[in-house]
């Protein structure tokens, strides 16, 4: 039987990532087609210069028709107005503006850009209440995308 779509797509993406990953992105662990861990380094000349972050991608069987679960993990979660301290990311392309042309690499680039355009390292205003009530999967949150500046 032919490989399912997510397996074909992810093996291609893994090859592309290994060949030429975007600047500041490295693969930490990608041994299956379910969970990948990637390292993301803050871009030089930005507020996050020199910092290292870890991203976790969870792929469902419907990837790439459905977005993966993406969150920051590890002990260094970026302090950013759109990133909650539990690692959840408020970014429209991860949820209802997902499109199958996006890739792990393009998500990393979007996050890199989101971090780079930040002008002051502040947590989201509702961080404390959100972290207490949110479920583990950020895709279950009803996100409101109201601020395009950061």
């Amino acid at each position: 039987m032919a490989k399912p779509m997510f397996a074909r797509r992810l093996s291609k993406e893994l090859k592309d990532l290994a060949m030429n990953a975007p600047a500041g992105v490295n693969i930490i662990d990608a041994n299956d087609f379910k969970v990948w861990k990637l390292g993301l380094a803050g871009a030089p000349g930005t507020l996050y210069d020199g910092e290292k972050f870890q991203l976790e991608f969870n792929f469902g069987p419907n990837y790439p028709l459905e977005s993966p679960q993406v969150l920051f993990v590890g002990d260094n979660i970026p302090v950013h107005p759109h990133i909650y301290s539990n690692g959840h990311i408020c970014l429209d392309v991860l949820y209802n503006h997902w499109s199958p042309v996006q890739t792990v690499a393009s998500i990393c680039l979007s996050l890199q850009s989101m971090l780079s355009s930040c002008t002051s390292k502040e947590p989201p205003p509702d961080n404390a209440t959100y972290v207490k009530t949110a479920r583990a999967n950020p895709k279950h949150t009803a996100w409101a995308f109201h601020d395009d500046t950061v």
């Binding site: 779509m5 419907n62 503006h97 199958p100």
Partner: peptide, 19 residues
Amino acid sequence: CLHQWLEAQHQNPTCPVCK
């Protein structure tokens, strides 16, 4: 591929590239 995406998005189908 496109058909799968249009089906998955049946309420408001958009182009995967430019939406």
